[in-house]
Design a protein around this nucleic acid. Structure first.
Length: 836
RNA sequence: GGCCCUCUGGCGGAACGGUAGACGCACUCGACUCAAAAUCGAGCGGGGCGACCCCCCGUCCCGGUUCGAGUCCGGGGAGGGCCACCA
């Protein structure tokens, strides 16, 4: 029995990967009696090759999954591929190939790379969203949601490329010399209103907002972003009557109804339906020209930061129901038709945007809010800027003197009593339009019948399969429209010749529920088995990038609620704990990209150093949520560490057979070694249990190796202590560097461990008696400054420590001639003499 | 403009309100070597001072709370993220 002197990851790693696979070590459901844990990383989008960012997410999740398995849980750690969608279609167009073919190849390469990295996935549960057996359930959900009015057809705004004559995605709109143009043909992009399918996510706005309170284990910045994105804003809707146009009301939404006595004009969005009706004949030409110009300008340009505020007077006047005053009605570029009521009451004295507009067009400014104390706000014509803070109402009729908050309540109530308004809530969140005029997505299961209109495809006819023969050019109508075999069908209701819906679903649909499909990935009768959902959901830990804060992570919370309503899942939230990992930058600190030529691919790194080295680098560089820079020398350092680990086992082979019974006799350096061993077990364990700080855990392992290198065992007791450390080290290393750990563990344990796998062995436990020190170093401070340190028993009280401290020469010098006014004693830590 | 986050040696990063800089990288010196690589040993925040002991300064800046602040509070600065004319 003699160990190879050299650490050779290239031969070790494939061997253990094979053993794990043969043993089915990472299959979920093998421990039905144990508590379940669901660890999930966001599945990859295989539009190209695997990159370092992927290696990072899966390495973080894998360390955790391996740890939890060793803790005895039944762990579900699945993987799949988010294969449909625009990027794959674009990549395919670029190299003139079919997205299915290209995607298939990419998946093969991803799978190989992931296996090379030794990830403990349950590969039997792999899903691919491009598989009809997956996306048929997207279609099934669509039908359920249509029935429940969660899916509906609406007129939506889309980016329309004037060159390609098609709708393009936001991602394809690029800025060129300040203009929004198509990335492919550089033609101007305009906003166009077209019919589309949408999810009524806004129906769940309150629930999605409330649910955030229970997500304490999510990063706060993510829940904050969601909160802002949902954007609940409480205010009032107030009806202004159009003067001279009996019965016409202009509803406005405001969060500051307390300022309504300062309203000096009303502004409508150019698209507002009342614009045509209200415009005075003599103003029509100018208004029409303005509206036409706004329609041609896209949203970003029109409402963006640098867009100047501009508007035109309609010639109409509106009556402020609180004051009976008539104010002019304008239209302006900055008012958004889709937010609130598409109309605003302008209070230039107390809103900066209204102020600027009023100044530009010479509209009156009226101060109606005064600060509760201090200097009074001057009249409107003397203001240099709007004062936007809450205060006390002034010149506001019967409401004068009320605080802003109280006034908002009373004025809303007053409006409701008088029938011209009410308190209301508005949301920033919009319904999710998911129609795409694209090929590489889930076909929407709808048939347009000349007699029956939009008819849902019956469930029994699912899936509506994406036809492979589509010609994808990316430059025309929806590609599916050109596939006659697909388009031409009969109405499910009456059998008349009909046309299929040719739009496909947004990719985000696929990722909204995939985590549930893993529970029973081959289920042919339903999207997944509810009893499996009961066992495994919600996800215990979800690892992914923070860039998904408001898209995917909101959509999947929405979808989970729908699934609960369908009786498929039990709880509100899909995921208990979220870990958002940082970016892997190039060694120059810039984002890895072709442009900077600073990309490093995981595959070649594994070939050179081994998967274990790459995994250790990723975990050691920084805590998961921080960005890291690639560093060749740091990687080499981690490889050096593994070689040192290897050598320490090689050099201490004589300890492998040491009798465990001798452990209790270990003394001196070897008792210290035992302490180090047990403290390291605690430290690494804490790293998993608390905040996933793998970097400090790995630092602890390095210290243990340093300690092992420093001892020279002579007796059986010495050797037993070394063996204990070697066994623990392998076990602690196994979530991070699983292959080397497995190999070393088997070397130490010898034939006794032949049929066992470290990956399945219980996590080591520590002896609290060895973790606790019996003597400690106590810092001695004088006036809070460190002046010395003393060794004392753990149990030492103040009098003993004080006596020791006062005996220290340095301390003595600092206490010389001073009066000790106070002594602060922190057991096991420090003693501080406060002198004067 | 709004909301949020971050700021510690040459670098990545450690530090229950209690010895700032664990661990690693880089660097310097030394050992081994004909030499190099690899490996091993030592040093490594700044200064007083080329050494010892020791002293002073030091966690973006200013102020506060505290016996004691990288950590808590207030104000400011710089960098980053998300949203952005949201009424």
């Amino acid at each position: 029995m003699s160990m190879n002197e050299r650490y050779e990851p290239q031969s070790i790693e494939p061997r253990w990967q094979k053993r794990w696979e043969e043993a089915g070590a990472f299959k979920a459901g093998r421990r039905p009696q144990a508590e379940p844990r669901y660890v999930l990383e966001m599945f990859p989008y295989p539009s190209g090759a695997m990159h370092m960012g992927h290696a990072r997410v899966y390495t973080i999740g894998d360390a955790l999954a391996r740890y939890l398995r060793k803790r005895g849980y039944d762990v579900l750690h699945p993987i799949g591929f988010d294969a449909l969608g625009l990027p794959a279609e674009n990549a395919a167009i670029k190299d003139g190939r079919h997205p299915a073919e290209r995607t298939r190849e990419n998946i093969v390469s991803f799978r190989a790379e992931m296996k090379k990295l030794g990830y403990a996935f349950d590969w039997e549960r792999e899903i691919v969203t491009a598989d009809p057996e997956y996306y048929r359930w997207n279609q099934w959900f669509f039908l359920q949601m249509l029935q429940r009015d969660v899916v509906y057809r609406r007129e939506g705004k889309a980016n329309w490329c004037t060159g390609c004559n098609t709708v393009i995605a936001n991602e394809q709109v690029v800025e060129q010399e300040g203009n929004q143009v198509c990335e492919r043909c550089s033609s101007p992009v305009v906003e166009k209103v077209i019919p589309e399918w949408a999810f009524r996510i806004t129906k769940y706005a309150q629930s999605l907002l409330d649910g955030l309170d229970g997500l304490g284990a999510w990063p706060e910045r993510i829940t904050t972003m969601q909160r802002n994105w949902i954007g609940k804003s409480e205010g009032a809707e107030v009806q202004f009557a159009a003067a001279g146009s009996a019965g016409t009301k202009i509803p406005v939404f405001t969060t500051r109804v307390d300022t309504i006595f300062g309203c000096t004009y009303v502004v409508l969005a150019p698209e507002h339906p009342l614009v045509a009706k209200l415009t005075a004949p003599e103003r029509r030409a100018e208004v029409d020209a303005f509206v036409a110009r706004m329609k041609k300008t896209d949203a970003v340009e029109r409402t963006g930061e640098n867009a100047p505020k501009e508007g035109v007077f309609t010639g109409a006047r509106a009556v402020n129901p609180f004051t009976g005053e008539e104010v002019p009605v304008w239209i302006a570029n900055f008012v958004l038709a889709e937010y609130g009521t598409g109309a605003v009451m302008s209070v230039p004295a107390h809103d900066q945007r209204d102020f600027e507009f009023a100044k530009k067009y010479g509209l009156p400014i009226k101060t109606v809010i005064q600060p509760p104390k201090g200097e009074r706000t001057p009249p409107g014509d003397q203001l240099a800027a709007a004062t936007t803070e809450d205060g006390v109402l002034d010149a506001s009729g019967p409401f004068t003197g009320l605080s802003s908050a109280e006034a908002r309540r009373k004025m809303s109530a007053h409006a409701a009593e008088q029938g011209f308004g009410h308190a209301t809530v508005r949301w920033h969140l919009r319904d999710w339009g998911f129609s795409r005029q694209r090929y590489w997505g889930t076909p929407i299961p709808i048939v347009y019948c000349p007699d029956h209109g939009a008819v849902p495809v019956p469930e029994k006819d699912l899936p509506v399969v994406l036809p492979p023969q589509a010609i994808i050019t990316g430059t025309g109508e929806p590609p599916l429209a050109k596939v006659a075999e697909f388009v031409n069908t009969t109405c499910p209701r009456c059998g008349k010749p009909s046309r299929r819906e040719v739009e496909t679903m947004d990719t985000f649909v696929d990722s909204s529920w995939y985590y549930a499909r893993y529970l029973s990935p081959k289920d042919a009768a339903r999207p997944f088995a509810p009893d499996a959902a009961k066992r495994w959901l919600p996800i215990d830990v979800y690892v992914g990038g923070p860039e998904h804060a408001v898209m995917h992570l909101l959509y999947f919370r929405f979808w989970h609620r729908v699934m609960r309503e369908l009786g498929l899942v039990q709880e509100d939230e899909p995921c208990r704990r979220l870990v958002t990992q940082g970016i892997v930058n190039g060694s120059d600190g810039r984002k890895m990209s072709k442009r900077w030529n600073n990309s490093v691919a995981p595959g070649p790194m594994v070939d050179r150093f081994g998967a274990d080295t790459l995994r250790l680098f990723i975990l050691f560089a920084a805590p998961p949520e921080k960005d890291i820079d690639w560093s060749d020398s740091q990687v080499e350092g981690l490889h050096r560490f593994l070689r040192r680990v290897w050598r320490v086992y090689h050099d201490r082979q004589d300890c492998f057979g040491a009798p465990e019974a001798a452990l209790a006799q270990a003394g001196g350096d070897f008792l210290e070694l035992r302490r180090k061993t047990h403290r390291t077990i605690k430290r690494v364990t804490d790293g998993f249990e608390a905040d996933l700080k793998f970097n400090t855990g790995i630092a602890g392992l390095m210290e243990l190796v340093n300690a092992l290198e420093a001892v020279a065992p002579k007796t059986d007791a010495d050797r037993a202590a070394v063996r204990e450390a070697l066994v623990a080290l392998a076990a602690l290393l196994s979530p991070f560097a699983p292959h080397a750990a497995e190999e070393l563990w088997h070397e130490v344990l010898g034939p006794g461990a032949r049929d066992r796998l470290l990956a399945e062995e219980p996590w080591p436990s520590f002896d609290p008696a060895l973790v606790a020190a019996d003597t400690v170093t106590i810092a001695v401070q004088v006036n809070g400054k460190l002046r010395g340190e003393v060794q004392a028993a753990v149990a030492a009280g103040e009098p003993e420590v004080r006596a020791l401290a006062e005996g220290d020469e340095k301390v003595k010098a600092h206490l010389e001639g001073k009066t000790v006014r106070k002594v602060v004693f922190v057991p096991k830590r420090l003693i501080n003499f406060v002198v004067g």
